[in-house]
């Protein structure tokens, strides 16, 4: 059963939530990102955020352990109950992907403490291709704007509790997702050795922008630091990128993914093939952030489409 709220009473609804929860929503500052808000007026929903939602669950640098003398203590993040508001369908599906991989206690602690509220995406742009990535309904609450009202779909008990006081909708309204760019044939497992990837790899600067802004890239580094001249230290986790040579370098000095080509293909294949083999869903959610961020405008979705086109011609 859907709940209903007037579009102009949304701010009031959110202000009430801010009293009891940390509310994270997209805002526009130097760049667009998810951030804790104090006033619903800060919310910016026009464009997809440049910085993905994962930053909240997997901070750039996170303390895991603290050392003192020979004692090791585990550090847990301190988080208030949190609501994420205004996440798009792609953002929410990205959390679903992360849930599948991350078995990390700090991640799970944050996830348990969070309620996800989604918002229907009215402005997909030319980089979006979510329609091709078989996204599912994954939310606690989801808002559909229609006729001056938000129709709220309920996905969980946690979500239901937030909208108990709102009137129920007489009619269910769910909107179809807008047309976006498409990847036609995602079955590229057999094309790993195709030379078409070399064109993209040649253009790649290995700057790691794609992996940093990807909402599902979760690879990390565990680093130790000891404080100068003291028997104290800490172990932190910080995000890493498979596009960098240092990522696969072992103690002896060898890098297992030495060439730019193998690194680039690792990114694309992990998103489209490898993850799907294991978890039955695509790791890529089609948000297009990697395409938007790439300084040399590498468009691997286009490459995949060219691949399927050439295959069709070959068949004929």
């Amino acid at each position: 059963m859907q709940k209903i709220i007037k579009i102009n009473s949304l701010n009031e609804f959110l202000t009430n939530l801010i009293k009891d929860y940390t509310v994270i929503a997209p805002v526009k500052e130097r760049t667009t990102k998810f951030k804790a808000i104090l006033d619903p007026k800060q919310i910016y929903l026009d464009k997809i955020t440049k910085i993905p939602l994962k930053k909240f669950f997997l901070p750039e640098e996170e303390l895991l352990l603290a050392f003192k003398e020979n004692k090791i203590t585990e550090v847990r993040p301190k988080t208030k109950p949190t609501i994420i508001f205004g996440a798009r369908k792609c953002d929410l599906n990205a959390i679903n992907v992360l849930d599948k991989v991350m078995k990390d206690p700090n991640y799970m602690h944050r996830r348990k403490n969070t309620i996800l509220i989604g918002m229907y995406c009215t402005h997909p742009d030319k980089y979006c291709f979510c329609e091709s990535m078989e996204l599912i309904n994954f939310y606690d609450l989801f808002f559909y704007p229609y006729n001056g009202h938000y129709y709220i779909s309920i996905g969980s008990k946690k979500g239901e509790a937030l909208v108990k006081h709102l009137p129920s909708a007489k009619k269910e309204i769910t909107l179809k997702f807008k047309n976006t760019k498409k990847i036609k044939n995602k079955d590229i497992a057999a094309d790993y050795q195709n030379t078409i990837w070399e064109t993209d790899a040649n253009k790649c600067l290995s700057c790691s922008a794609c992996t940093v802004v990807c909402p599902t890239c979760n690879c990390f580094d565990i680093k130790d630091k000891s404080l100068i001249n003291k028997k104290q230290g800490r172990r932190t986790r910080s995000s890493a990128s498979c596009q960098l040579k240092s990522f696969s370098r072992v103690a002896g000095g060898k890098a297992f993914r030495d060439s730019r080509l193998s690194r680039f293909k690792h990114f694309v294949y992990h998103k489209i093939v490898y993850f799907k083999n294991r978890h039955k869903i695509y790791m890529c959610v089609g948000c297009g952030r990697c395409l938007r961020a790439c300084p040399t405008h590498i468009d691997w979705t286009k490459t995949i489409n060219i691949l399927s086109k050439t295959k069709k011609i070959q068949k004929k």
Binding site: R30, T31, K33, K50, I51, K55, E60, L205, S206, C207, S208, A209, V212, V213, S238, S239, S241, L244, K245, S246, A293, P295
Partner: peptide, 20 residues
Amino acid sequence: LTEDPVCFECRKKGNPCLLN
């Protein structure tokens, strides 16, 4: 010394790309 480019740290900080 790190062998990663400046971009890696820059992107991690969430800076808008100056090249773009």
